[in-house]
Design a binder for these strands. Sequence first.
DNA 1: ATCAACTTGTGAAGAAAATAACAAAGTTGA
DNA 2: TCAACTTTGTTATTTTCTTCACAAGTTGAT
Lengths: 216, 216
Amino acid sequence: MGNETMKIPQATAKRLPLYYRFLNNLHSSGKQRVSSAELSEAVKVDSATIRRDFSYFGALGKKGYGYNVNYLLTFFRNTLDQDELTKVALIGVGNLGTAFLNYNFLKNNNTKIAVAFDVAEEKIGSAVGDIPIFHMNDLEEVIKREKIGVAILTVPSQFAQTITDRLVGADVKGILNFTPARLTVPSSIRVHHIDLAVELQSLVYFLKHYSESEQE
Amino acid sequence: MGNETMKIPQATAKRLPLYYRFLNNLHSSGKQRVSSAELSEAVKVDSATIRRDFSYFGALGKKGYGYNVNYLLTFFRNTLDQDELTKVALIGVGNLGTAFLNYNFLKNNNTKIAVAFDVAEEKIGSAVGDIPIFHMNDLEEVIKREKIGVAILTVPSQFAQTITDRLVGADVKGILNFTPARLTVPSSIRVHHIDLAVELQSLVYFLKHYSESEQE
DNA sequence: ATCAACTTGTGAAGAAAATAACAAAGTTGA
DNA sequence: TCAACTTTGTTATTTTCTTCACAAGTTGAT
Ligand SMILES: NC(=O)c1ccc[n+]([C@@H]2O[C@H](COP(=O)([O-])OP(=O)(O)OC[C@H]3O[C@@H](n4cnc5c(N)ncnc54)[C@H](O)[C@@H]3O)[C@@H](O)[C@H]2O)c1
Ligand SMILES: NC(=O)c1ccc[n+]([C@@H]2O[C@H](COP(=O)([O-])OP(=O)(O)OC[C@H]3O[C@@H](n4cnc5c(N)ncnc54)[C@H](O)[C@@H]3O)[C@@H](O)[C@H]2O)c1
């Protein structure tokens, strides 16, 4: 109930960046106020869930009025630490890695891919955009020097665990893992798996076994 | 309880492809039997959850023994329809789209990206690997001709909804959406959102607000 | 044969998340 | 100023998912 230090539910935490993005859209389009019902339509989350999510941070809205877009936006910018930059390393500049380097994660964003690593000699020393590519030999040194806190893993899966161990040793706290490998890490390290093949497979499973019925 | 037509929990369904993949690994490495505890260590899912998941399909294991890898593998191959190919279309052959086309989703897999679409003239008519790139003008015709059931969306977000409407019109039943747009679809269509920016943001949020505590 | 060691499958409990429903408060327009 | 309307914040309820814990069956060594 508005206690900033209280831990909010994980499900809520995962929706916050989504809310933030849509509030930015609303702001850009000049909208001054918004109701949970409107927001619900835009982000496809039940309006009661949205009100509940917001309520963990206190009373952000006004009865009979809704939410003030500017106020909410400022609030979330602070809550999501949008003004504090988290530097990210990308390991494995292949198909997927290159796509991420080319993409600008920085739009309305508090994260930046600052450095990349690979083992392919022809890539070392070059850069994608303004992101330099280093050799894996320099991993620990560069990560510590650049104060990298998060790594994106896009290497062949058989190397994922070894590299993870090195990242943990270099004090990286969070890993976004795109390889199919399930990583073993100390409990203080947070890993988010994004398993594209599993996503596609499970979509197909749902289509075959749940058709003509509910949406997720 | 072993009734094949019963709908299993969604959370379970999302884990099935993961189990299948690891069973394949075990099989390849010549393992004959496996316990829920071993599997748990490999896929990072609580062993009770694994036993519960399997139990929705009946009694697949043996007390005191565990599970027979071959039997389980065959069972899941059927359950996941691994022998029936689902053809997939990819829309938007840019950074991300090209990475997916280059990647072989087909390994141990029942899905295949069969066709791709774009609007950039220089890409039309060419191919990535064996996947031809068509013009968006031909979307409906090609999708119907090729009997495409699933689409992967990797276009700029402002075009996502319009293209989605066309996909729905062309009888596509499932969409894997990589754009930040939240799509409006009839309830018979299933959409899985993979929002990479949100994943990165929420990872950062967890690191700042949940550190020194539980894993996901 | 016997028995200690394993490991499943599941009932029961617990935890987390989503949704319903509505009193209370504020807004809007006449 | 007031009445009709809107919309929040929250309490209660429901749903979904996870985990515990253990009886019961199976194995494998002796
Ligand atoms: N591309 C996709 O669409 C896709 C889809 C699903 C999953 N994945 C997974 O993502 C990962 C990367 O896929 P990709 O298609 O980009 O592969 P890729 O082969 O194109 O790229 C891998 C890159 O990692 C580099 N690399 C190899 N060994 C390394 C090491 N020890 N240290 C650092 N870098 C090393 C390679 O030089 C290469 O640049 C794989 O694990 C793959 O399973 C990719
Ligand atoms: N690349 C990433 O790392 C990344 C990360 C997160 C999200 N995304 C999202 O994925 C989507 C694609 O990103 P990208 O980096 O590949 O972009 P991109 O610009 O490299 O590729 C987009 C492709 O879509 C094509 N296209 C444009 N309009 C089209 C239309 N009307 N119909 C069909 N094709 C059309 C373009 O010709 C281009 O080939 C975007 O919505 C982006 O927000 C990408």
